[in-house]
């Protein structure tokens, strides 16, 4: 298992290096940083000075190495647009995105698993069929449309919830949270549903199909033949056996929740990193774009790593390492 963990960590590192290369290349191929920084009135001497100062006169691998070195230290340079360190800007914006993503993920997992189990157990009931039909809408409607529909219904027509922004936030020094105020919580509802709905339907459909598959297995039949109660058959025996594939997909979905947050944050003008990224694109703010890319890929890699480790926790068959299995 340790060998596996090390191998995975190594793979993750390669992924990050490649993403880093892409992010770094943006500096060279998307616009000219000197252009962006100096504006119209510049002299040849200015340009030369800045080139050396930024290290742009160095060969490509050296530049890349220095980019990585500072990236590891959390230094992504100065935003072209805002003129402040990118790391600071991101640190300010990140809590908003993480809180939104977390609430969406919890909603998606809790409701996804519960409804998946329900629709599998009551396979032919009208309630389960209704849920399945509705879930088709969930997968087929684009996120921004769901967001706009929700805004129209709950903000414009009913006036229950705010249509944009984060509400009041409490500053904890290093983290600004919306969890502690009523307006902050209210502001979370619509964006969280919008962001999590697709993932929820996906998880639900997956749990359902995995459950149906597992419920056909002999050990479920045997569990029934032993006179175990439905509750135990469904949750103790069946659900646990669906978890490996469900966790794989859920892990990937958590990553895409953070990535998809761009759309939701735009629709709801949510002050997170997604919105920051959209604005950065508009102004070709390369340092911010590069930092965002790196951040997202680091999150993907971490989530994937955790998912892989969870397999071991769930499935004892994987725990046997090779030397051990040879003895048996």
């Amino acid at each position: 298992m340790l060998a596996f963990a090390i191998r995975r960590a190594f793979q993750s590192l390669i992924v990050l290096l490649v993403v880093g290369l892409v992010a770094f290349s943006m500096f060279n191929f998307v616009g000219d940083p000197i252009d962006s920084m100096l504006g119209q009135e510049r002299t040849g001497a200015d340009i030369e000075r800045l080139r050396t100062q930024l290290g742009l006169d160095q060969p490509f691998p050296v530049q890349y190495y220095r980019f990585l070195e500072s990236a590891v230290q959390g230094n992504f340079g100065i935003s072209y647009r805002l003129g402040r360190p990118v790391s600071k800007i991101i640190a300010e914006r990140l809590p908003a995105t993480l809180e939104l993503a977390m609430v969406s993920a919890v909603l998606a997992i809790v409701f996804g698993v519960a409804l998946g189990v329900f629709t599998a157990i009551r396979r032919n009931g009208w309630a389960a069929n209704t849920v399945m039909t509705l879930s088709l809408i969930g997968v087929s409607l684009p996120t921004f449309l769901i967001g706009i529909l929700l805004i129209y219904l709950f903000a414009v027509e009913l006036g229950w919830l705010p249509s944009f922004g984060r509400g009041d936030v409490v500053d904890l020094g290093w983290w600004r949270t919306g969890f502690l105020t009523q307006s902050g919580l209210k502001a979370l509802v619509l964006p969280a549903i919008t962001l999590g709905l697709y993932q929820m339907t996906l998880i639900m459909r997956l749990v359902r199909s995995e459950m149906l598959e597992v419920l056909r297995q002999d050990y479920i039949r045997f569990a029934r033949a032993r006179g175990l109660r439905d509750r135990s058959v469904y949750f103790r025996h069946a659900l646990k056996n669906t978890l490996v594939p469900v966790i794989t997909v859920t892990g990937m979905q958590l990553g895409s929740i953070i990535a998809f947050a761009i759309i939701t944050e735009t629709v709801f003008q949510w002050p997170g990193v997604g919105l920051l990224f959209i604005n950065a694109i508009r102004f070709v703010d390369i340092p911010v774009m590069a930092a965002y890319l790196m951040l997202i890929s680091v999150m993907f890699v971490i989530i994937n790593f955790i998912v892989d480790m969870l397999y071991f926790a769930i499935d004892p068959r994987l725990r046997v390492d090779r030397t051990g299995s040879a003895q048996k």
């Binding site: 002999d218 050990y219 045997f222 033949a225 032993r226 006179g227 109660r229 025996h237 056996n241 004892p316």
Partner: peptide, 22 residues
Amino acid sequence: RAVRGKQIGMVFQDPLTSLNPL
């Protein structure tokens, strides 16, 4: 359900799949 297991035990054909692997 209360009769199954308590008053009637069952043995199936394939022991490899009769037990919950987890």
